[in-house]
Simulated assay, not measured.
Amino acid sequence: MFTGIVEELGEVTAVENLGDSSRFRLRGPLVTEDAKHGDSIAVNGVCLTVVETAGGEFTADVMAETLNRSSLGALTTGSRVNLERPMAVGDRLGGHIVQGHVDGTGTILARTPSENWEIVKISLPAALRRYVVEKGSITVDGVSLTVVDAAADFFTISLIPTTLALTTLGIKEPGDPVNLEVDVIAKYVERLIGDKAEGAAK
C-alpha cells in the first residue's frame, strides 16, 4: 500500500523491449537505499516489483497488461518518473490509501497558472466518472490529490509549488498521458451496495 506522497523524482535510464513485456531500469537513489529483490516501488503510481538494485538504480519487469492499461508504455530513456516506497506499518498516512493499481489513464487538457499554484484540467474516462467527486481523493501519476471540479468527462486539480517542483506534474504538458487511480473505498462501497441490492431482489 502507498500514500500518494512522492518521495523522489526519478529517471528512466534504460528500456529493454522483451516482446510481450519490457524491463525498465530507473534511477532513484533514495527509494533504492533500502530496497531489495522482490520489494515494491510505485512508478508513476504503478506498483512494480524490484528485480535488481545497483548504484542507486533498480530494474523492474512490466507486463503487457500494465503497459496497455497505464502510461508506462510511453516512457523512454530520460523520462522523469514519480517514485514512492510502500507505506510501513505505523507510518503516517499523509495522502490517502493508494494501491498502485491503475484504473485508467487520462490526458492533460490544459494548465492554468496562478501566482502561487496551478490548476490542471485532466480528461476523465467514462468508466471512472462515478468514482470522482468534488473534494474527493484521486491519484494522478502516483500523486495523492484533491479533486477541485468534477465534470462528466474531465476533472481539475490544484497544484501547490511543492508538487510542481518535486513531481512530474510540474513538467507534464497538455496532451501528455497520466495514470489515474480512483479511491478504492468508493469501489468497495459500490460493490457492497450492488451485492446487497442484488440479494434483496432475489
Rank of each mutant, 00 (worst) to 15 (best):
T168G: 08
E115I: 05
L83P: 08
G94F: 01
E8Q: 11
V12C: 10
L18E: 12
G104I: 00
V43Y: 04
L75H: 11
R191S: 12
G142Q: 14
T139Q: 01
G100N: 00
K187V: 05
A165M: 08
V12Y: 03
A35F: 02
F24L: 15
E52P: 02
V147Q: 08
E7V: 02
E190W: 09
A74C: 11
P161I: 06
E198F: 05
D176C: 02
G38E: 06
H37M: 13
A64Q: 14
A64W: 05
G78R: 03
P86I: 03
D176H: 08
L18Y: 00
G19F: 03
D153W: 05
G4H: 00
W117A: 15
T107S: 03
K187D: 10
N179F: 15
Y131K: 03
L145F: 04
D91Y: 05
L93S: 01
V132D: 12
G38C: 03
D39Q: 00
L93I: 13
V120I: 15
L166C: 07
T77S: 13
I185D: 01
R111F: 01
L83E: 08
N68D: 13
T105H: 00
V178A: 01
D195L: 14
F154H: 15
T139K: 05
V50G: 10
T163P: 09
V89T: 07
E134F: 04
